[in-house]
Design a protein around this nucleic acid. Structure first.
Lengths: 209, 209
DNA sequence: ACCCAATCTTGACGATTGTCAAGGGCAGTT
DNA sequence: AACTGCCCTTGACAATCGTCAAGATTGGGT
């Protein structure tokens, strides 16, 4: 099916590619709706209504509602966790690395709070619904790896030695982020500054001098 | 059962007391059901079925489903956070305090995981449903205070000075607990030992020598 | 023993949901 | 031009839910 190449030279999008494009197109649309209402309170009809398709299409591209949210969150978090790679590659000093990391962290909290609360919603539901657990573990691993790349890069730049395991380090930073997210969603004005301050306060403590 | 002592004297339970008793009786029953299925997937009928009453009673004692879960979680978490008071009062040394704290933390994870995931469920939903936020903030304050009582007590016993603010400290410990809860619910065998190790590793870092 | 208010049961309503199947329209191929 | 497979729409089904109201039941005060 893929070798239509003979006639049309290069069909810009093959069948599967078009299928995947629609999938992520739907996922991106669903992401905003899910991020606004949460998993339980968002219906597939609501998702379709905020897209340019009808509600049957969702089932054509995703096996179930559970499939949809998992795909959405994993899609976003993969993209999100890569956002720090630039900082890691560019930073020439430890301070610069930390600055860039905290900046990105604060900015994603400011601009994409709905996506993050959706992730924590999914992770929370995975504690009740076994169906979610495998994918949640994968996403969690994504984030843990991202944090650890920051930590090891900082170690390379400054010679400081990580004081805790990757899992412990991630858990602490994540706890901080959750707290900031709760405050920010709550309308607390200085949630962003707080996160910045707290991050700067914590990060040095993650290493042995 | 009440054996109305004498004539009036002291009616062992007044109207309101009896009302409150039934309320917490229902709350305790609902707590196990909610802890098993989560907020979204638990119906009031399911809750009533696991109690000795019919589903109408739930609405007689609670204004809404939201009222019910909030009352349940707050009831449990208040009780749970007081569980550390004994350790704080008894501990004669810093090591003893930490030992007792971590022991209690690990035990509650082992024995009451459903209650804890219900709390995180409620906290997560509060990011989508403003109705929950006020009560969630109160419960969060309860826990932050509890952690801070441990920290200040440790400071008194050892002379070590807390390195972070109450909020930051609570956020880090909570992050650790969430991670352990996820692992434990997931069936990871060494989730409990991990929490113990990680807690012992972290706690000293919360103070300046 | 009687009465009244508190307590509890039962049944129903309106609304919503995930899921699926049947069918229409369109593109590319023969 | 006819056909075929893909994409999408529409409509429906079966189940479930929170909420409420009307009525039965109970128990304590008189």
């Amino acid at each position: 099916m893929t070798e239509t190449v003979g006639k049309k030279r290069a069909p810009v999008r093959t069948r599967d590619e078009k299928y995947d494009e629609r999938r992520t197109q739907l996922a991106e649309s669903a992401l905003t709706t899910l991020g606004e209402l949460g998993y339980a309170r968002t219906s597939l009809r609501e998702i379709a209504q905020h897209s340019e398709f009808s509600h049957g299409v969702v089932h054509y591209y995703f096996n179930s509602k559970a499939d949809l949210i998992v795909h959405c969150v994993r899609y976003y978090k993969t993209k999100c966790s890569r956002r720090y790679d630039g900082v890691i590659a560019t930073a020439a000093t430890g301070e610069e690395l930390i600055e860039g990391f905290v900046d990105t962290l604060v900015e994603t909290l400011r601009n994409e709070a709905p996506m993050h609360r959706l992730w924590y919603d999914l992770r929370g539901q995975s504690m009740f619904e076994p169906e979610f657990r495998e994918q949640v573990a994968i996403i969690d691993g994504l984030l843990e790896d991202m944090i650890w790349r920051i930590v090891t890069r900082y170690s390379e730049l400054t010679g400081a030695v990580p004081a805790f395991s990757p899992g412990t380090t991630y858990a602490m930073v994540d706890g901080l982020f959750v707290k900031a997210l709760l405050e920010h969603v709550n309308g607390t004005a200085d949630a962003l500054e707080n996160l910045r301050e707290q991050a700067f306060a914590i990060l040095p403590a993650l290493f042995r001098s």
